[in-house]
Design a protein around this nucleic acid. Structure first.
Length: 824
RNA sequence: GGGAAGGUGGCGAAAUGGUAGACGCAGCGGACUUAAAAUCCGCCGGGGUAACACCCGUGUGGGUUCGAAUCCCAUCCUUCCUACCA
């Protein structure tokens, strides 16, 4: 038989099928109201130098899932595009003198070629490139609409600045304990600048509440919840003895009576005003020192506390206590009001500070034993104890005390209920040229003037004057910079900051449905960025897939953006992506993160040349659970190649069937069980176990190959079904085999196979017999055997009898078709 | 300090209350071959046995249950996120 077996040579047919699918328009997009739609979206790539095997890891399972939905009868939309603005292009321009536009489009060409090699069902007819003016004019249009709605604003504030990238960053792009730039890992510094921001904090509560509705992984929802950082409490006004108000935020209004001092952040605006003359030198040098200190050291909780007394006092509004005002860098200007009331009796940090500087410690909540004993350590419990030393609140149980105190604060105008968020407004200004220009003009006469809708897009200049210093080239490009004020027609200058590229990716899922809508026409305020009918059909996204690294960046921004679009009347839903699956990361063969410097990067071109696309796809899906990631192991890719070879062998077998009788019933059972298993696994993104199930069925077919089963109707049904089940994973091989079996219409236009539940039931079943829960025997019996017979069979087994010996059977547990447990 | 995900053979893993290790890699043995590659067949957690039996085994210690990798409590370790957050 060996001589009739042919070799599986994917290189001989993969390219052919890719061309055929394009010719046949197999993956062209059509809105079809008669079929249910399924919008499957995978995070769009940034076209850096080359496609990485990490892209394959993210994208091929997404494609498999999309293909599966399509075979189930959905009209599937699986678009692709390029997130094409960003610093690498600009850096290449500065370093090598290449035009960032040329650099980017050249990379995109290469990406397209490599993406086509995946054999994925991309909707190329709806491709989007975010650096095309036809795309970014809509980003500018959104900006203008948000400006009108007071959701975009300009503010002079302290911002994070990356000295290496020469630009400001959003809070979300500052990472780690040392507060480094997300891109280049340089620690950021603080700068005071006038910057554009989006009012994402306005949606904080809704962004929190919406998470409950989403079929997203817990980890992402938790990360967003923590990032938004909602805490309930009260804002209370303390006053200096001179009468200046100092607002503090506290989550423990029930401990107000225990405030024995106050602490301001060194950057607090009141600091200059309240310094007593005797303390001026000390305070000023402390503030100067704090400004010098890197955030990383300030942020380090291990560091022992430092601080300085201002010489001023404030009055505690609830009991009139005179409390000293200190300055210390453990209070951060960026959270709450930048000032705190310190309650050392009930807060560890305040206690540490009080001890170090000899400040009063007062207990206003009774301890666990009900005593108001000596202060050993801070007593932070919010559930045990009762208020004391707190005027008429004495005796109030601490559980539930806070709302009562807040109500009283409001009645007496000493404070008010307040919710504080960790979330900051989204800073979108970037001092870089390779981005979407912010459509604003600055005029000496008229001030800040938005570019009129009909003048959009504000396009980037063809030629730019790149500076080796990395300074924004737009500042040095007069053709861009110098303009005319839309309002007074006088000379004016354009905003040279561009938008954070997360702006582009906040709405790309909408851009895909109708790319570059209103080509060439002047825009108006009332235009729509995509045809509402097309949008109505496809939106929102049904299934999103991508890495978890975007949990508090892109995934938060795009949710915010959708809520804005809803409030602008552009979409009629609240959430952009209903389901989200986060794949893991593929690492190098050494288990380390793939990177050029480590030399462990796998080039997809090379492995595809060696093994073919289908093998690479299959290998990536077989590594392990998709959300877990794992190392690239060059040896294990052989396993998938062998599997596909064996399928090829089985599927191309002709004649040569042997004399032995195969078990048809067993094969039929396995066939239907496999359909069920693969269907169920694909529903849950369990690609690895789905492939294992396909391997099992194929192994059974290998065993049946030399029997008389080969060539029977059942055999042919099994091979055809294998083609269908394999099609989403291995689109080329299954198409090749399908066509060799004389099917005329593409395997990818077939329906997903159904299984027959009756056929999955086995005729004969192995029953486990346990004595005291330990397996002592197995019995092969016919399915559905009644309990008494099962029990009888179990007792009759010699090994079971040996274990029963002369013991008394106390209890018998029988699980039909599964096991008998004898308790003695 | 707070949170999330994990911990199972030599390795990637499977099993979500019912035969632990499916499927695959590596390894070992065999067939084919002058030989090798490829391909095919078989074995493959540890101890134990001539072979069975039997004993041990899912990070660790308890618990629930006829029965636990799976559920509960405690604890250790790994990875990630977050953090003087008031």
């Amino acid at each position: 038989m060996n001589e009739v077996r042919s070799q599986y040579r994917p290189q001989e047919f993969e390219a052919k099928w890719q061309e055929t699918w394009v010719e046949q328009g197999l993956y062209d997009t059509r809105e079809d109201p008669d079929r249910p739609k399924w919008y499957a979206l995978t995070m769009l790539p940034y076209p850096s130098g080359e496609l990485h095997v990490g892209h394959w890891y993210a994208m091929t399972p997404s494609d498999t899932a999309a293909r599966y939905k399509r075979m189930q009868g959905y009209n599937v939309f699986f678009p692709i595009g390029f997130d094409a603005f960003g610093l690498p292009a600009e850096n290449a321009a500065i370093k090598h003198g290449v035009d960032p536009r040329k650099w980017t489009y050249r990379n995109i060409d290469n990406f397209r070629r490599q993406l086509r090699q995946m054999g994925a069902m991309w909707a190329w007819d709806r491709e989007v490139v975010t650096c095309d003016p036809g795309y970014y004019k809509w980003s500018q249009w959104f900006f203008l609409r948000m400006l009108e709605a007071d959701l975009a604003y300009r503010e002079y504030a302290t911002v994070d600045w990356c000295p290496s990238c020469n630009t400001t960053l959003a809070r979300e792009q500052v990472w780690g304990e040392d507060r480094h730039c997300e891109r280049c890992e340089t620690p950021v510094i603080k700068r005071d600048l006038e910057q554009w921001k989006f009012r994402i904090t306005k949606y904080a509560d809704e962004l929190l509440a919406g998470l409950k509705e989403l079929e997203w992984a817990n980890s992402v929802r938790t990360m967003q919840t923590n990032w938004i950082g909602r805490s309930e409490g009260a804002q209370v006004t303390f006053r200096t003895e001179a009468g200046d108000p100092i607002e503090v935020f506290t989550t423990r209004p029930d401990t107000l009576w225990g405030a024995t001092f106050m602490v301001l952040a060194p950057e607090h605006p009141l600091v200059g005003k309240i310094i007593g003359d005797d303390n001026r030198t000390a305070v000023e040098s402390y503030v100067a020192q704090a400004a010098q200190l890197a955030e990383e050291e300030r942020g380090n909780a291990e560091k022992s506390k430092t601080g300085v007394f201002t010489g001023s006092y404030a009055v505690n509004p609830v009991n009139g206590d005179r409390v000293p005002i200190w300055i210390a860098d453990y209070v951060m200007m960026g959270y709450g009001t930048g000032a705190i009331m310190a309650v050392p009796g009930h807060d560890d940090r305040d206690l540490e500070f009080a001890r170090k500087f000899g400040l009063d410690v007062k207990r206003v909540i009774t301890g666990p034993d009900g005593a108001v004993g000596p202060i050993g350590e801070a007593w932070p419990s919010q559930t045990e104890g009762a208020m004391c030393n707190s005027g008429h609140f004495d005796g109030t149980p601490v559980a539930g005390a806070a709302p009562k105190v807040v109500a009283w604060l409001e009645e007496t105008s000493k404070g008010k209920s307040h919710v504080n968020y960790r979330l900051h407004d989204w800073l979108i200004s970037r001092q870089r040229m390779w981005g979407t220009p912010i459509p604003i003009v600055y005029c000496l006469a008229c001030g800040t003037v938005p570019v009129p809708y009909e003048d959009l897009p504000v396009t980037l200049p063809e030629e730019t004057n790149m500076k080796a210093s990395g300074e924004n080239a737009l500042l040095h490009t007069p053709s861009f910079l110098e303009t005319i004020c839309p309002s007074c027609k006088g000379a004016a200058k354009r905003e040279t900051d561009t938008m954070d590229t997360f702006m582009c990716s906040s709405w790309y899922q909408y851009g895909y449905v109708d790319p570059y809508c209103k080509k060439g026409e002047p825009l108006t305020r009332d235009d729509r960025p995509w045809d509402p009918e097309i949008g109505q059909y496809w939106l929102p996204v049904d299934q999103y897939t991508g890495g978890i690294e975007h949990a508090t960046m892109h995934l938060l921004y795009t949710r915010f953006f959708t809520k804005v679009l809803r409030d602008l009347g552009i979409v009629d839903f609240d959430e952009p992506m209903l389901r989200l699956f986060n794949q893991g990361m593929i690492s190098g063969a050494d288990g380390e993160k793939m990177s050029k410097s480590r030399g462990n990067v796998v080039d997809p071109d090379e492995v595809v040349a060696a093994f073919g696309t289908d093998v690479v796809r299959g290998y990536l899906m077989f590594i392990g659970p998709w959300d877990q990631g794992g190392p690239w192991d060059p040896k294990r890719i052989e396993g998938i190649r062998r599997f596909l070879q064996r399928f090829w062998t089985v599927a191309n077998a002709k004649d040569g069937a042997g004399e032995t009788v195969g078990d048809a019933r067993e094969l039929e059972q396995k066939l239907h069980a496999t359909i069920q298993k693969v269907t169920d696994d694909l529903d849950h993104f369990h690609f690895n176990t789905a492939i294992a199930a396909l391997m099992e069925l194929n192994n059974d077919l290998m065993r049946a190959l030399p029997t008389r089963l080969q060539g029977t109707d059942l055999w042919n049904e099994a091979i055809d079904t294998m083609c269908l089940l394999m099609a989403p994973f291995f689109p080329h091989l299954s198409e090749e085999v399908w066509s060799r079996r004389n099917h005329e219409v593409s395997v990818h236009l077939q329906s997903w196979p159904d299984f027959d539940a009756d056929k999955i039931l086995k005729d004969r079943i192995n029953i486990v017999v346990q004595v005291n829960g330990k397996v002592r025997a197995t019995l092969e019996v016919e399915a559905g055997l009644a309990e008494p017979q099962l029990q009888e069979g179990a007792l009759a087994h010699p090994n079971v009898q040996a274990h029963l010996a002369d013991k008394q059977i106390r209890k018998v547990i029988v699980v039909p078709d599964k096991l008998v447990n004898l308790v003695v």
